[in-house]
Design a protein around this nucleic acid. Structure first.
Lengths: 208, 208
DNA sequence: TCGTATTTAATACGACTGTACCTGCATACC
DNA sequence: GGTATGCAGGTACAGTCGTATTAAATACGA
């Protein structure tokens, strides 16, 4: 038996390189060669771990979906943690927004995959599944909040969950499209981001 | 004097071809050749009207921004037109969403330009300017609505305008990412689009 | 009708694309 | 130790990319 390599780890390593290229120069700059260079290996190497460029892109998408899922699972809205429901919700949303350099990079990657999904249904399906899952999680949390009285009884938790996810996506783009955004200031002080006025307006309406 | 052609019209013709290609196959499929083929002319022809591919893309972006601006200017929220404020607002937002095939195509084009703007600041600037203009228009309309009492006095019109624009963008993506969307049904009956539950939740909070 | 300026088409160029193949190399079993 | 097997790198190929340059066709003013 010859040398054995951890295939999965290699694939992740190459996918990470692909995401770095995407974050820096967009998905149009992603080619087998640029990714190989970024990953510090040869073209032949990435070809062994991915049969085709398309398979590589699919794997990369699944990896970002996976990390988003992990982040999502780490969020707890209900629960006894000395915080108001509105505050916890706001914190959870802020956590999902590109307010520092690393999350800004991740958002740029998402932007590229979103655009690809707009014309490629199989990509859209993967994203839609994550979205359904997020909808379920958030809806469950909101139902719990309503049961404890933290959320008004007149509000439909499922529709509200939809609304919050829509706002998160919309805010992501609004922040991404703002060329004058000061990321350094945003990371320390959320009030330096004028786009978040929309978020506070929404939260003020939801949980006054 | 030799043959004279309407340069501006030619540029628009070619830009329209570029947008058709983008709508169908995404921006990665846009090349000087594919656009020339779609426009029914030679590569040399598009090269005369656009010095470079980048200039062509800029012109195309400006043309979609221009048409979005025109659509926006056609929207009137305040005014005596036998409609409640909330109803007029809802209608205006629905008009901006990809709920039929033509607007779905336009949304796909927007998706592509959004993604490009995420990594190319000069594109982002053009979009940001349109966004600022929309913010101003909507803010004005909301201030007027508040002055007539149709909007509660406790709400900040500017923040609310931001929120509505964020929701429009977020809804656009939510609809675009849904592979199971029945466009035919959506065009005739907005209730066939589950994503719009988010919109109604928001409107219920804003103008109850 | 001629001349000329403008539009067109076609081609050439170097660089880059995705993919296929092929050569060494290091390893682990017989 | 020999050898077969999985891995890495390199190269080749047929296309396509954006752009520059060329020659032909066109249409108007004189």
């Amino acid at each position: 038996m010859p040398k054995l390599v951890d295939h999965q780890a290699r694939r992740c390593h190459i996918a990470a390189a692909l995401l770095r290229v995407t974050e820096r120069e967009g998905m149009e700059a992603v080619s087998v060669r640029t990714v190989a260079a970024e990953a510090g290996c040869s073209v032949g190497a990435v070809q062994r771990y991915f049969r085709s460029k398309d398979e590589m892109l699919h794997f990369a998408l699944r990896s970002v979906v996976e990390s988003a899922r992990r982040r999502m699972d780490g969020i707890r809205l209900g629960g006894p943690d000395g915080m108001t429901f509105a505050g916890a919700l706001r914190a959870a949303i802020l956590q999902s927004l590109p307010l520092d350099t690393t999350r800004l990079g991740e958002a740029r990657v998402w932007a590229a995959f979103y655009a690809k999904a707009a014309v490629q249904p199989d990509f859209a399906e993967v994203i839609a599944e994550l979205h359904r899952e997020a909808l379920g999680n958030l809806g469950r949390a909101l139902r719990y909040a309503r049961s404890t009285g933290e959320l008004g009884p007149g509000q439909d938790p499922q529709a509200l969950a939809r609304l919050i996810l829509v706002i998160i996506d919309g805010l992501m783009w609004a922040i991404l499209m703002d060329p004058g955004l000061d990321v350094a200031a945003a990371a320390s002080d959320a009030d330096a981001v004028p786009q978040l006025a929309a978020l506070d307006a929404a939260l003020g309406l939801i949980a006054p």
